[in-house]
Design a binder for these strands. Structure first.
Lengths: 194, 194
DNA sequence: GTCTATACAACGATAGAC
DNA sequence: GTCTATCGTTGTATAGAC
């Protein structure tokens, strides 16, 4: 009996794992989700999960289908220190939205607004993979609150400029937007919140 | 011939008008939409539109199903002048989201993200009824850009706090949020954008 | 009998044709 | 510079609902 080795072609174990992961992560959160549980739901061996996605975090990133991988881009943005970080974050955020296909982001937002489970998944992902790293770079009090404030301005910028397309913000030069918004982000990161 | 007078029961002229208005406003914008055209689409007399909704703007507000009527709340917020306006706007915005049912707002956002026509309708409404009034109260250069920047921070606050529910922002005391965000809005209204 | 939905007609404003 | 078409809006009358 062929219990080990590769299955006949056409098995979609990878997609089954991703589907099970999305459901579990949205329902129980990152910590409440186990690789073994996902593997069981998908009807595969836990080792196969690691074969496809490397780590639990890698599976998380893949399940989100997030257009950029924060673990690869954020360190470079954070490395130079808090000074000028607001500007670097805004400029990078804009460059991601300006370049290429916006539909993955729109799908994320649409899901978050429509289903609480999708919102939970996005919340968990952003908190852990994005805001957690940003908060770790903050030297002031309440780093998590500061990071979420940064997030609020950035997601609002995306909504106003790319989704609702409010003019003249939607057509403004990227550098104009950076000049206007970066001080806000910088203040959230390192200024007074009073 | 009974051409005038009330129709037999069951006629839903009011809803027909609203439906035609949403379609026309989303497709052609406020100025490109005529009351007469809406009336024709709905198969009613133009005067009936005014009977139900008073003015074209009233019809616009009704078609949007916007949870608050900007023409009744904004003047009081804007009257005391630009000083402290950021704080008043943020506090009012929070009070509207905190109190009562959020589903009308969520429906607006969901529509805007899902259908371009809904986004156009929301854009037109917010620009004309909300940001237009705010911009008129601004004494600095680029009042429209400033108003849209205010809008970006407010819609981002709603997304982060009420939709994605990023912690600790989602659970923060309203006054903490006001203290953190109001200076941003105030700077967009009256500060330097450089 | 009163209230409300509905239609007709017309007014003042505005913008484009010629 | 008229003329005309169209717009938002209003006044008034009527027919059906309650």
């Amino acid at each position: 009996m062929a219990r080990t080795g590769r299955r006949p072609a056409g098995s979609s174990s990878r997609e089954a794992i991703l589907s099970a992961a999305r459901q579990a992560l949205g329902r129980y959160g990152y910590d409440g989700t186990t690789v073994r549980g996902i593997a069981a739901d998908a009807g595969v061996d836990p080792a196969l999960v690691h074969h496809f996605f490397g780590t639990k975090q890698g599976l998380f990133v893949a399940a989100m289908d997030f257009p950029v991988d924060p673990s690869t881009v954020l360190p470079a943005l954070l490395a130079p220190g808090v000074e000028g970080l607001g500007e670097r974050l805004v400029r990078f955020f804009l460059s991601v939205w300006e370049a290429g296909d916006r539909s993955p982001f729109l799908a994320l937002i649409r899901g978050a607004v429509s289903h609480e489970e999708s919102a939970a998944l996005l919340r968990e992902f952003v908190t852990r993979e994005v805001l957690g790293r940003v908060a770790a770079a903050v030297n002031e009090s309440q780093p998590q609150l500061r990071a979420t404030l940064v997030g609020s301005q950035l997601v609002g910028l995306a909504m106003a400029r790319y989704v609702i397309k409010l003019e003249p913000l939607a057509s403004a030069d990227p550098e104009t937007v950076v000049a206007a918004v970066a001080p806000t982000v910088q203040r959230y990161l390192a200024g007074s919140l009073a």
